[in-house]
Write a protein that binds this DNA or RNA. Sequence first.
DNA 1: TAGGCCATCTGGTCCT
DNA 2: AGGACCAGATGGCCTA
Length: 354
Amino acid sequence: MLTRLFSDPSLLPDVQKYSGWAEESDGEDSKMKEDEQDDMEESEMRGDSRTQSEHAGEDEEDEGVEEEDDDGEDTEGDRPKKRGPKKRKMTQARIERSKLRRVKANARERTRMHDLNSALDNLRKVVPCYSKTQKLSKIETLRLAKNYIWALSEILRSGKRPDLVSYVQTLCKGLSQPTTNLVAGCLQLNSRNFLTEQQCQDGGRYGSGSFSMHSYPYQCARLSSPHCQPGSNSHPLRTHGYCSAYDSLYGGSGSPEYNSPEYEGPLSPPLCINGNFSLKHQGSASPENEKGYHYSMHYSGLPGSRPTGAHNLVFGSSGARSGIHSENVLPYHDMHLHHERAPVYDELNAFFHN
DNA sequence: TAGGCCATCTGGTCCT
DNA sequence: AGGACCAGATGGCCTA
C-alpha cells in the first residue's frame, strides 16, 4: 500500500510550501515521509488510531472532515466514555494550522538536535583523540569525556602522576574496541597489551573508583622505530600515515601528504600525562607551525632515558584482535593531539613541573 | 546481510 | 496555545 502511495505522485501533497523544509529534507524520500506525516496529522485530528500503513493507503476524501464524536454516547462496545475536553470540530482552517504547527515543531526539533550535535562536536574536540574524519560516536564521546574528567580529577585529587597505561585504561573504561584502539593509538600504546591488562583488572580497580598508580614497565614512545624512519614505508601504520605524525614532528619528511587540509587549528587538550603537556601555540593553525608542537611523549620521569621503541607502535598489522584498526590509524593532522589551553591544563602543567 | 549509528518525524508531557 | 524536551519508530548509510 505504501509502495503504491509513494509511487503515485498524485497522492503526494505539496508539503514543501512550508518554509525551511526543502533545504533540510533530502528529496523524494523526505517528501514521502511528509506524505505520511500529513496522513498521520489528519488521522490524529480525527482521533484515529489506525496504523500508519493502514491510513496511508487510503485515498478517501476527507476535506473538512467532521470530528468523530469520540466522547459521545456512541462509544464502541462497553468502553467508558472518554473524559477530558471535548474535541472541537476540525475545520479546514484548524487542520491547516495543525499541520503548520507540526511542521514548525519538526523544524524546531531539527534545530534542537543540530544544536545538540554541535555541542557534541565541541565535546569531541576537547576529549582525547579528536579526529575530523574518524569521529567518535555520540555515546563513545560521552563515555570518553566522562573517563577523561575522571582521570583528570584523579590526577588532581591524588597529586600523583599516573603512568600512561593507567591513564589510558581509565580513559578507555567502557569504550568499544575500536575507540579503545583509537585512544591507545593516540597515546602510542600497544592496545593489545594494555587491554589484556585492563581485562585482568576490570571489576576491581575501576569498580572501586580508585585511580591506580600501579607500576608498569612503560617506556614512553619517542617513535624511533625503524618502521617510522623517513623513507620506510614497510610498516603498516606508515601506510596509513600514522608514523608520519612523528616524522613531521621529529624532523621527518614533512611530506605534504601529512598536511591534511582538514586541519582546523587548535582543538584538543594536551594528551600527554607525563609532565609535558603539549600545548599548541595559539593561532598556529598552519601545518608549518604544527611542526613546532611539543609533542612530548617521552618519559620525563626518566632523565636521560633514551627514547626507545619498546612500546611504540607495535600494533598488530591485521585485524582488530591484534591491534589497531586501519580506520583508526589517522594522519597526524587529522588525528589531533590535544593543544587547546584551558585552566585545568595550566594547573596540571604547573603540577607536573613542580 | 546484520548490526551500529544517525537524522528525522512524531506524539506525549510538562511548563510558561 | 505554543515551546522545550523526551523517547519510540523508521529508514538510510556504512562496515564487517
